[in-house]
Simulated assay, not measured.
Amino acid sequence: MPEEVAGAQPERRGPIVFLASQTEAAQLAREELVALYGDAPLAQAGVIVALGGDGFMLETLHATQHRDVPVYGMNRGTVGFLMNTYDTVDLPARLAAAQENVLNPLAMRATDTQGRVHEALAINEVSLLRAGPQAARLRISIDGRVRMEELVCDGALVATPAGSTAYNYSAHGPILPIGADVLALTPIAAFRPRRWRGALLPKRASVRFDVLDAAKRPVMAEGDGQSVRDVVSVEVQSDRKVRHRLLFDPGHGLEERLIREQFF
Rank of each mutant, 00 (worst) to 15 (best):
residue 4 E to H: 14
residue 6 A to W: 00
residue 9 Q to E: 13
residue 10 P to N: 03
residue 11 E to W: 02
residue 11 E to Q: 07
residue 13 R to E: 11
residue 13 R to C: 13
residue 18 F to V: 04
residue 22 Q to L: 05
residue 29 A to V: 04
residue 29 A to I: 06
residue 32 E to Y: 02
residue 32 E to S: 12
residue 35 A to S: 10
residue 38 G to W: 06
residue 38 G to A: 08
residue 41 P to F: 00
residue 43 A to Y: 00
residue 44 Q to Y: 00
residue 46 G to I: 02
residue 54 D to G: 06
residue 54 D to V: 07
residue 55 G to C: 04
residue 56 F to A: 02
residue 57 M to F: 05
residue 57 M to N: 06
residue 59 E to Q: 14
residue 60 T to F: 11
residue 64 T to Q: 07
residue 66 H to W: 09
residue 69 V to W: 03
residue 73 G to Q: 06
residue 78 T to H: 10
residue 83 M to N: 09
residue 85 T to P: 04
residue 87 D to C: 10
residue 87 D to W: 07
residue 88 T to E: 13
residue 89 V to W: 10
residue 91 L to F: 02
residue 91 L to T: 06
residue 93 A to E: 15
residue 95 L to D: 05
residue 103 L to T: 13
residue 106 L to D: 01
residue 107 A to M: 12
residue 108 M to G: 02
residue 111 T to E: 15
residue 111 T to A: 05
residue 113 T to N: 00
residue 114 Q to V: 00
residue 114 Q to S: 09
residue 115 G to R: 06
residue 121 L to R: 14
residue 126 V to K: 07
residue 126 V to N: 09
residue 127 S to Y: 04
residue 128 L to A: 13
residue 129 L to Y: 13
residue 130 R to E: 04
residue 132 G to Q: 03
residue 134 Q to F: 12
residue 137 R to L: 14
residue 138 L to E: 05
residue 149 E to S: 09
residue 151 L to Y: 02
residue 152 V to S: 03
residue 153 C to F: 01
residue 154 D to V: 03
residue 156 A to R: 06
residue 164 S to R: 08
residue 172 H to N: 15
residue 177 P to M: 01
residue 179 G to C: 07
residue 180 A to T: 14
residue 184 A to D: 05
residue 185 L to N: 05
residue 186 T to P: 11
residue 188 I to L: 08
residue 199 A to K: 05
residue 200 L to V: 09
residue 200 L to C: 04
residue 203 K to T: 03
residue 206 S to T: 14
residue 207 V to G: 03
residue 208 R to K: 13
residue 214 A to S: 15
residue 218 P to H: 03
residue 221 A to P: 03
residue 225 G to N: 08
residue 225 G to L: 08
residue 230 D to R: 14
residue 230 D to E: 13
residue 233 S to G: 09
residue 236 V to F: 07
residue 240 R to S: 11
residue 240 R to Y: 12
residue 246 L to H: 01
residue 247 L to D: 02
residue 249 D to M: 14
